[in-house]
């Protein structure tokens, strides 16, 4: 099974290009809506760009586009993927370069009517064009498993599945993973979002192992529930942009590093509190003596 139009690009790679940063096309999807796909795409895009990778983010959620908003690029959009496909502008004209992180470009979604005529081949064409110029192409997938998802999935070799520790989100993620696997997309990796360590410790929420047990995917990152996410969303400045020390911002940066093949250990969120307290305890100890 192949991706003929990418043949030239990927022929130099063998197997799964986990450590190579060359031309990786990654679908960011979830099944269930509102679990954090767009937030992950924006933060990961910035983080990868900061780490030196040429990165493009593509908004494939034509119906409810908002990747441009989260990146603070809404007012700079002139052309969209729609005009590129129609041949009425060149890709370079439609790409919106990020002010502070010029390694990152956004290809905006066209208008919602695009949903009616866009085909998987159109999507492959756009992503193919992006893959010629960028190391990473991240595709913010719409929720659901209908045409929008199918089009986006047709154009990607890898996927990140985002879920939250809730039964319904995990169920939908599982469905999506099944569909991705039949398309031979790999690797498929997992990002668990909106984790609340205290609720997990009290077993009021599915635990990390409950989720990975069912989904059986490598866990690329854990992102804590963090008010800063909402603040940054409203400002149009992803958390990874300014090197904040916020837990979610760090988690997104670590996801980017792991995606690039770096070994960054994952910490158990339910033990985090304890080790922090232990650290504080030690600090106090040293102060007293």
């Amino acid at each position: 099974m192949g991706w003929p139009e990418f043949g030239a690009i990927i022929s130099g790679m063998s197997g799964i290009p986990v450590t190579s940063a060359q031309n990786r096309t990654i679908l960011i999807c979830s099944g269930k809506g509102g679990v954090g796909k767009t937030t992950l795409t924006a933060n990961l895009g910035i983080a990868l760009a900061k780490q030196g990778a040429r990165t493009a983010v593509l908004d494939a959620d034509f119906g409810l586009r908002n990747l441009d908003l989260l990146l603070g690029l809404e007012n700079r959009i002139v052309y969209t993927a729609q005009e590129v496909l129609a041949g009425s502008c060149r890709l370079e004209q439609a790409l919106v370069k990020h002010k502070q992180e010029p390694n990152l470009s956004l290809l905006p979604a066209g208008n919602p009517r695009m949903l009616e005529w866009l085909t998987p081949d159109d999507m492959k064409k756009i992503v193919g064009l992006l893959a010629e110029q960028f190391d990473y192409v991240l595709i913010d997938c719409p929720a659901g498993i209908e045409d929008g998802f199918k089009n986006a999935a047709a154009a990607c070799r890898e996927a990140l599945v985002v879920t939250t520790p809730e039964v319904s989100a995990v169920r939908d993620a599982d469905r999506v993973i099944g569909l991705l696997q039949t398309r031979e997309i790999k690797p498929i990796q997992l990002v668990l979002n909106r984790v609340r360590p205290r609720m997990m410790a009290n077993q009021e929420m599915l635990s990390v192992s409950d989720v990975t047990d069912i989904l059986a995917l490598p866990l690329l990152g854990l992102v804590l529930e963090d008010d800063q996410v909402i603040v940054s969303t409203n400002r149009g400045e992803p958390l990874t942009l300014n090197g904040t020390r916020s837990p979610a911002g760090q988690a997104y940066t670590n996801v980017a590093r792991r995606l690039r093949g770096e070994e960054v250990p994952l910490t158990d969120p339910t033990k985090e509190g304890k080790s922090l307290r232990a650290k504080l305890g030690r600090l106090m100890h040293t102060k007293i003596f």
């Binding site: 039964v167 169920r171 939908d172 599982d174 469905r175 993973i177 099944g178 069912i214 059986a216």
Partner: peptide, 25 residues
């Protein structure tokens, strides 16, 4: 061969042997 994930429905006339999990859904 392999896990059945949410939304999958395996239908078999005789006996079904799943080498993997049958996930919720």
């Amino acid at each position: 061969r392999g896990t059945l994930r949410s939304g999958d429905h395996l239908q078999v006339e005789g006996t079904a042997l799943v080498l993997g999990d049958v996930n919720p859904g």
